[in-house]
């Protein structure tokens, strides 16, 4: 029983991280139909900025605002000076721009931070809740708790605010939304900033969760986010969140029961293939009306 509960917590923590990273990319896809590969680079930027702020101030409380502000700015600049120039081209062109940006960012981080993992250790990492043989660490509480709070924030933002309404309108039909007075370029920029800020928080959380930050920690994410997006039905925020948690739990329980008969990321891709065969519109998808 203790093992089952621990796996549940481990899976939920992984799912929380997956969700926070994927939301930004899903929002961009939902609005602009762009596969924003450089999003994984924004996530690493958040981790590095958070670490820098932590090193300078000695408190993890400063790591989060630093990552949020830095990544939001980076997201905006990426949109303003990169994607905005190509947003009306064929989808392949923004994709190539994204890949190029991601590669450049990866190398820049390596030059700035060095090629190896850097410690991101805060004093509370080893504390936690113990109930018999069942342990929850402070890190897991931190990750799951912050993700839950942020997801509620995203939900309120998308469903309860005027900006959220404009966002949904633009996602459904850009031209009509523009026709009724939604400033779409403004929406797109805001969208990039918001998603990037979430990725930045995810970067800090991952750094704290594993106690380490690495310049190449975004490499897996550059493609793994696609899996979460496809599982969730491309561009569907709620679906993406559900898919992220399902994937985190699936990975954890499969590894716990059968070990690594497949690498962790292969599990994700097999889930994606199964979903594409069985429910091609994602876990939240509805059959298209014919």
């Amino acid at each position: 029983m203790g093992t089952f509960l621990e796996n549940l917590v481990t899976g939920a923590a992984l799912g929380s991280i997956y969700a926070l990273i994927s939301i930004g990319m899903t929002m961009v896809y939902g609005l602009l139909k762009i596969l924003h590969v450089a999003h994984a680079g924004v996530y690493v930027f958040g981790a590095l900025l958070g670490l820098l702020a932590f090193r300078l101030t000695g408190s993890i409380l400063f790591a989060f605002p630093a990552a949020v502000l830095g990544c939001a700015l980076m997201g905006y600049l990426l949109y303003r000076f990169m994607y905005r120039r190509v947003q009306d081209e064929k989808p392949l062109i923004p994709l190539i721009v994204g890949i190029g940006m991601f590669t450049a960012m990866g190398d820049a981080y390596r030059l700035a931070a060095g090629p190896y993992s850097i410690s991101f250790e805060h004093g509370l990492a080893q504390t936690g809740i113990v109930l018999g043989t069942f342990h929850i660490s402070f890190n897991q509480v931190l990750v799951i708790g912050s993700a839950a709070a942020l997801l509620v924030l995203v939900w309120l933002m998308v469903n309860k605010t005027k900006t959220g309404l404009a966002w949904r309108a633009s996602a459904q039909d850009r031209e009509v939304a523009m026709g009724i007075g939604v400033n779409s370029n403004y929406m797109f920029g805001l969208n990039f900033m918001f998603g990037s800020a979430l990725a930045g928080i995810a970067g800090v959380l991952v750094g704290l969760y594993y106690g380490a930050v690495n310049a190449n920690m975004g490499e897996v994410w550059a493609y793994k986010v696609f899996v979460v997006m496809v599982l969730g039905g491309l561009g569907n925020v709620t679906g993406t969140v559900i898919a992220a948690y399902l994937l985190g739990l699936a990975e954890t329980f499969i590894i716990s029961s059968w070990g690594y008969f497949l690498p962790r990321d292969a599990i994700a891709f097999i889930c994606m293939i199964l979903v594409l065969i069985l429910m091609p519109n994602g876990v939240m998808g509805k059959r298209k009306q014919v």
């Binding site: 203790g2 093992t3 621990e6 481990t10 043989t133 954890t252 329980f253 070990g259």
Partner: peptide, 11 residues
């Protein structure tokens, strides 16, 4: 992430 294996090992 070794947590799922380590939970088993603890068992």
């Amino acid at each position: 992430d070794f947590r799922s294996l380590l939970s088993n090992i603890k068992n």
